[in-house]
Nucleic acid binder design. Structure first.
Lengths: 299, 299
DNA sequence: CGTTGTTGATAGGGATTGGCTATCATCTGG
DNA sequence: CCAGATGATAGCCAATCCCTATCAACAACG
């Protein structure tokens, strides 16, 4: 069995297209095709459903896919481990973060890249569920997400931030004199919020429910930028994580108000998978997060 | 990088000898030598300290060794996963067990092989510490060991047995009429016990300590067979796990007595590593252990 | 209904490399 | 000084990995 063939296989599973997968692997399409045939021959199983075009993976193919990712992840770990001893860490640090934590990636990236000049960080905005899967599948080296909500399958974490909420409205829409708002009145307003698949939304829903309220926001988006744009129209109000609000606090048309009753803050932090030989990327991420934690300056 | 080269590398690390490692891999010695050179060239690092003979691994070599084992373990998982779907599980189930649990491997093996006719089980007697390392390094598919003592790095376990203690003496040495013994008097006798690196010995030491006693056994061995042989001489007495005693209860010269006060029983069971895609071997082991647990017949 | 673009498989050739046997260089022990 | 052990080197062969060029089947569309 060839490692390269496993790369072809995972690429095809990802791209769902022979030519694109080949290009992603930097080889020609016939090469990828032949490599996959060889892999199927090695295992004695058809892994790919094809009907003159890519259909999907067979049952066997789906069964071995996570294993192929494990193999390749371990190979990455091996190469990094060998490279890390003599010189600095090199390559791409693949960080996934929930949208609410995006304001933290600046400080984290600063710490990480200061400690590892050879690294390049790539940030991927993902839901907490996707981060969990991506960590298990070695798609990401680390994630920044909620620490207390996860079923947490074998992860190490470093808390970075405690999330608070801020009410957001456009100036001149009746809130200018206010110093705070309460949850009950907000529930009655024209809210725009994230969609229900996203963790921050679920947390808010639970917060409203804890107050005996339920919300049916007339506008739903999948990014804070969209929410901000909706608020700017003056038609809507929304709720931001404080870290996110800080990032855009310079906007003169935008008004942020605290709530009268803050729920228990949600811890947000860095998570990496806790495998036996810890990958140098994971280690570097933990070190950077710990440095950040000591300084106390996050966001 | 070639998977085969990683096999060469782990074999060499295990055998500490080029020719033996080559033979273990089923290739000629120059082939292995060249393969290792290629691996070193790939990584750009010397991995092996050589001085006309094998000296040891370099720092880099030691760093990548656990990763190489991860890679190969994942490859095994992949192969098994692909094979397991259609037909029965094949190959070798590598079980490690502490000596005190060796009497359990019969029932476990029976259950495992009944459920998986294509499997062959190989049993390795190891200390609990070695089992822990071997599981992490993919040297074993499962272990049978104490469940409550482990620091437990990501393992799944199924309890199989609760260990009790029996006093063992040769008949005709003054114990024939007795129905039980107490810890204090045993502490005064000429005991032979396992050496202190072994878990069962440490458990006994703690048991004695809990009774305010301390023992300095005049004979120490690393196997129960040796202990039994020492007891047979009539000069010594010892303490066996009840499961072990059952196994040799047919010996007419041998006398087993319970203790008056039993400490809390120690749970012994099957452990497998809890990785994200669970290996079919681990799964098969768990299933066999669970079947055994339901039947309640272990040992 | 024919044309065109897309998608994946096949054919053939060249370069790489993994493997073998045979041999050598060096060290160890007697 | 000789014999054995250990690992590296040389030279050769076969496998295979990858490429370009091409083909076959299908879909979309005028």
């Amino acid at each position: 069995m060839q490692l390269q063939h496993l790369r072809y296989f995972t690429a095809l599973a990802r791209e769902r297209h022979f030519a694109r997968a080949a290009s992603a692997c930097g080889v020609s399409q016939p090469t990828l095709s032949a490599g996959l045939s060889a892999l199927e021959h090695d295992l004695g199983k058809r892994l790919i459903e094809r009907d003159r075009r890519f259909i999907g993976l067979t049952e066997e193919g789906a069964a071995i896919l996570p294993w192929a990712e494990q193999v390749l992840g371990a190979v990455r770990g091996l190469t990094h481990a060998s490279a890390a001893l003599s010189v600095e860490l090199q390559g791409e640090f693949r960080l996934a973060a929930i949208p609410a934590a995006l304001p933290l990636v600046g400080a984290f990236g600063e710490a990480l890249l200061a400690q590892n000049r050879g690294l390049a960080m790539s940030v991927h905005s993902q839901t907490s569920r996707e981060i969990e899967r991506g960590l298990a599948a070695n798609t990401f080296d680390a994630g920044i997400t909620y620490l207390d909500h996860e079923p947490a399958g074998n992860v190490l974490s470093v808390p970075l931030h405690e999330e608070q909420y801020l009410f957001v409205a456009r100036r001149g829409t009746g809130f200018d004199g206010r110093t705070c708002v309460d949850w009950a009145e907000v529930a009655e307003m024209r809210l725009c919020l994230l969609h229900q698949g996203m963790q921050f939304r679920r947390i808010l829903d639970r917060q409203f429910a804890d107050c005996g309220l339920s919300v049916m926001p007339p506008a739903i988006a999948d990014s804070y930028v969209s929410l901000l744009s909706l608020v700017r129209s003056g038609e809507f109000v929304t709720i931001f994580p404080a870290a996110y609000a800080d990032l855009v606090s310079g906007l003169d048309w935008c008004l942020f108000l605290p709530f009268d009753a803050e729920p228990a803050p949600r811890r947000i932090g860095l998570v990496v998978v806790d495998r036996d030989p810890m990958g140098p990327m994971a280690r570097a991420g933990l070190l950077a997060a710990q440095a950040l934690q000591r300084v106390g300056k996050v966001g």
